Structure formats: C-alpha cells, structure tokens
Computed example of a mutant assay.
Amino acid sequence: MRTEEKEEEEEQQWRSVHEVLLIVLPYLHSLFELLSMTRVSRSFRDAIRDETALWTNVVVEPPLSSRLTDDTLSEITSKSAGKLNTLILRQCLRVTDNGLRRVIDANPLITKMIVPGCTELTPEGIMKCVSSLTKLETLHINGVYGFTKHHISSLSSTYLPREGSIDVEVCPKCDEVRMIPSCSRRSCKQRQSKERKCKGCWFCVSRCVECSVCLGPETEVQEAACGGDVLCLECWIVLPKCCFCNKPYCTSHSSLRHEIASSDDAAAAAARPMFECQACYYREGTNPYDAFDYQI
C-alpha cells in the first residue's frame, strides 16, 4: 500500500515538473535550447513537437548553424503550420536560396527575417523572398555578399520604407553597402541622421569598438587587445585589463581571455577577473613579466 502511495506521489511530482517546464518553453531563446528540452522525456518531446505556438519563432545560432541544411530547415519550420512569424538564421552556411524560398512560400506571414552571415544566400534570392512577404517589418542581411546600392534602394523604397527596417545601408563616404552604426556621442545624437558628420561605416569612420562612439582628433583613444581595435577612454576604464600589458578585450572578444586562477573568494574573482590576453599568453618565455622592459 505504501509502495502504491509512493508511486502516485512520485508521478504527481513528475506531472508538476512537466507543467512548470511547459510554462517555461515559450521563453526559450533558440532552437538549440528547444531541442535540448526534447531530451527530458518522451512525453515532453511529443508535447513540444505538437505545440504549434512553440515553432512560430525559429532562431538558429551556433553551434547548430553549421549543421542546418535546406531540408532540415524546411522540416523544422513546417511545425509552425504556416504561422511562422520570426526566422533568425545566424551564420547558416548551408542554407541556400531554394531552401529559404521553400520556407517563405509555406509561411507568408513572416514579419522578421534575420539572416546575417548566411553566405550561400544571394541578393536576388532574398529580393524574391521579400517580395512575397507582405507583412515583413525587419530584414537583417549583413554578411550576405553581393548587395549593391540599387538592391538597397529597391528594398527600402518598395518593401521596407520604414527607417531602420534594414540593418545595412549605403555608406555616404565610400558608397558601399555596409552597416552604419548610430553614434552614441551626445552632440551627434542631437543632429538628424542625414546631418551627422560621422555617419559612415566602420571602415570610413574610426569608432570605439565597444560603444560605437566616433573617435575624432580631440578624443583620447586607447588600444584594445583585440588586434587593431580601439576604445574610447570611458569604455577602456571600465573593461577588465590583461594583467601584463594592461589592454582590455571588448565584450565581443572576451572569450579570447586566458583566465588566471585567483586565491580570492569566488565572488571577488568574478568581480575582478584576472586574465592574460592572447599576445601575452603566447609570448616567448615562461615568465610573462620577462616580455616587458620595466624602467624605474
């Protein structure tokens, strides 16, 4: 009798766990997280597979990006039953125009299409897809090669006239199609976008790699450990520095740090991370301090 009661209690607890997990599912960020949840149990896998609402936003990021093919993408997006709203494919190098077109034809209600770094896609293929999406509001195509100012002009005038709908535009300085960051400097913010003197791509205007502020001749500039990247003084001050060369990594390159074990408690170590940059880590000599000529 006690055994039966114990089994019923365990089953009830498991049901409660499932109910909580089902509540969490809509808040998962990417396809990788969603597929990971299907491994909890068979019943949970079936619940995820049959819940159409969970598949209306498909986000594919590394490490799954390199494995995604046209057929796999079609199979995944078919679970939305034609109600796909957001399609985000980051650096999916095996997705082609035909694969994307297949998804678009089956899901004409897409409002957000983000495909940065999908190098197998072409401007012509994306233009055809955009022309079929009457509710498209956001298009990110940075890293898709071949776009010209004529493509961007057609997209912005015919399909996406709202400013900021497309993540790239024609640089007014070099006339190339590139991302043009909005400057965070207060004096630049007060000007209209077209009047900004610093309006230009990363190649034409020197900017802080962390906050994108323009770096003029009167701005104090600091070198980052990222290899050629520069920082404004405000960002340089707050970023953790290499223990030997005193250069920080920007946030996007923080994974390159070689952490140094600290004897302090965990909380203090997390607040003040100790690390070497790659240049100091691979420098010749067993003692990093030997690489520097200190003069007293």
Results as ranks from 00 to 15, higher is better:
Glu176Cys: 07
Lys173Cys: 05
Ile237His: 13
Trp55Cys: 04
Lys83Thr: 15
Leu84Ser: 08
Cys208Trp: 07
Ile180Arg: 01
Glu10Asp: 14
Cys129Thr: 01
Glu11Asn: 11
Phe292Gln: 07
Thr148Leu: 04
Leu68Ile: 10
Ser254Lys: 12
Cys183Val: 10
Leu87Glu: 11
Arg207Trp: 03
Leu73Glu: 02
Cys245Thr: 07
Cys208Gln: 09
Glu51Gly: 02
Met127Pro: 00
Ile166Ala: 15
Asp229Gln: 14
Glu218Cys: 00
Trp202Gly: 01
Leu21Cys: 14
Ala268Phe: 09
Glu195Phe: 13
Val40Asn: 05
Ile76Cys: 02
Leu155Asn: 04
Arg2Gly: 07
Arg185Lys: 12
Ile23Leu: 14
Gly143His: 04
Phe292Cys: 08
Ser212Arg: 10
Cys243Asp: 11
Ile237Met: 14
Met37Pro: 05
Cys250Ile: 01
Arg49Ser: 06
Arg67Pro: 00
Lys135Ile: 01
Val144Lys: 04
Tyr289Asp: 15
Leu231Phe: 09
Met127Ala: 06
Ser252Asn: 13
Glu5Thr: 12
Asn85Gln: 15
Cys245Lys: 04
Leu35Gly: 00
Val40Gly: 06
Trp14Asn: 03
Ser131Val: 07
Gly227Ile: 07
Pro248Asp: 10
Glu61Tyr: 13
Arg94Ile: 00
Arg90Phe: 05
Cys183Asn: 08
Thr72Ser: 09
Cys183Asp: 10
Gly117Cys: 06
Ile141Val: 14
Gly146Phe: 03
Ser131Phe: 04
Asp293Thr: 03
Asp46Cys: 10
Cys183Ser: 08
Arg207Thr: 06
Arg39Asn: 00
Leu87Ala: 11
Val177Phe: 05
Leu160His: 10
Asn246Asp: 11
Glu169Asn: 11
Phe275Arg: 01
Trp236Ser: 15
Glu8Met: 07
Pro217Glu: 05
Leu28Lys: 02
Ser182Met: 14
Val17Gln: 02
Leu84Met: 11
Ala291Val: 03
Val40Phe: 09
Leu155Phe: 04
Val230Leu: 14
Gly164Gln: 14
Asp46Glu: 12
Cys204Val: 04
Glu169Asp: 15
Glu259Met: 11
Val168Ala: 02
Ser131Gly: 15
Ser157Gly: 03
Cys183His: 09
Phe292Tyr: 15
Asn98Val: 08
Ile110Tyr: 12
Gly285Met: 07
Leu239Phe: 03
Cys92Glu: 12
Thr38Asn: 03
Ile104Cys: 07
Ser187Tyr: 06
Gln91Phe: 03
Leu34Glu: 00
Ser263Asn: 14
Gln13Cys: 08
Val24Ile: 15
Asp265Pro: 04
Val168Glu: 02
Thr52Asn: 04
Arg272Trp: 04
Ala53Ser: 13
Pro288Val: 06
Val103Leu: 13
Tyr281Trp: 11
Ile104Asp: 03
Leu133Lys: 05
Lys79Thr: 10
Glu276Arg: 09
Val40Ala: 06
Phe44Thr: 08
Lys135Val: 04
Glu176Lys: 15
Ile141Ser: 06
Ile48Gly: 04
Ser206Tyr: 02
Arg207Phe: 05
Phe44Asp: 06
Lys189Pro: 02
Phe275Cys: 02
Asn142Ser: 10
Ser65Cys: 04
Lys112Cys: 03
Ala266Lys: 08
Cys250Val: 00
Cys250Glu: 00
Thr96Pro: 07
Cys242Pro: 00
Glu4Ala: 15
Tyr282Arg: 10
